[in-house]
């Protein structure tokens, strides 16, 4: 089989020594598009909403009430909503942009060979890792703020007895495993979707890819949802730590 699959994204051109890959290009294009779109909608907001404003209001309002159902209403939901919703909308648009027809045919010569200009943004592990690191860092910061720095450290380093020390170590491993599990889930699903699509296209080019495309469409939406909801759940768990401890004692 002569399939052109690589884990690392292809380099399109270098900008003053900085290699610009196809996923980087597309993540910038999609971010600029999203920013312009939302700013334009917000600028032209009217009391009687038009078609687009209606759609955005439905989306934002629905997401906000979902966030409130997990964190509980009030200040907490208001603070965590922008981060989680931005992650959701960016991941969703990046995953769905794969289904714009015809973009796979556009290639460009980078000096060594022809590489596709478009590639699923979330199939670049670097980007997914950065998003995961942001969400894990926010979790730790929230945990430190709610529990206080000493209590936070005490969760991991506990010298009371050997069992507590071991459990603290396990807690530390659990926090590190969050980085791996969150990032590999999103990256693995999207990259596997790409690989599956090209393998099926190679084996049976007509009609057979259709059900797999639907499956990919479903997982594109579900993975965007899952990534942001897990971030939300972890953050709201981190913000409820002290109450949980008191309940145990």
């Amino acid at each position: 089989m002569d399939l052109n699959i690589s884990l690392a994204p292809d380099i399109l051109f270098s900008l003053a020594g900085f290699p610009v890959t196809n996923t980087l290009l597309w993540s910038v294009v999609l971010s600029v598009f999203l920013m312009l779109f939302f700013v334009l909608i917000a600028r032209s907001a009217k009391l009687i909403p038009g078609r687009w404003q209606n759609f955005i209001e439905l989306l934002v309002d629905g997401s906000y009430s979902f966030v409130e159902s997990i964190t509980g209403p009030g200040e907490k939901a208001k603070r965590v909503f922008p981060l989680v919703f931005t992650m959701f909308i960016f991941t969703l648009v990046a995953n769905l942009a794969v289904y714009i027809p015809g973009q796979a045919a556009i290639t460009v010569y980078n000096g060594e060979g022809f590489v596709p200009v478009f590639r699923a943004v979330m199939s670049d592990y670097g980007l997914v890792l950065i998003m995961t690191l942001i969400s894990v860092l926010v979790m730790q910061i929230v945990a430190i703020i709610t529990a206080g720095p000493w209590k936070y450290l005490g969760r991991f380093i506990n010298l009371k007895n050997p069992l507590a020390f071991f459990l603290g170590l396990m807690e530390l491993v659990g926090e590190l495993a969050k980085i791996i599990s969150l990032s590999f889930r999103l990256f693995g699903n999207i990259f596997a979707g790409e690989v599956l699509g090209s393998v099926i296209l190679f084996l049976a080019p007509f009609f057979m890819p259709l059900p797999f495309q639907f499956l990919g469409l479903l997982s594109a939406v579900v993975q965007a949802f899952v990534f942001s909801v897990l971030t939300l759940v972890f953050i709201s768990m981190a913000s409820e730590m002290p109450a949980e401890e008191e309940a145990k004692v």
Partner: peptide
């Protein structure tokens, strides 16, 4: 869906 995605993660690894 969330629970399934968590269950799925070992398969994804």
């Amino acid at each position: 869906f969330v629970a399934m995605a968590i269950t799925e993660s070992t398969a994804i690894y």
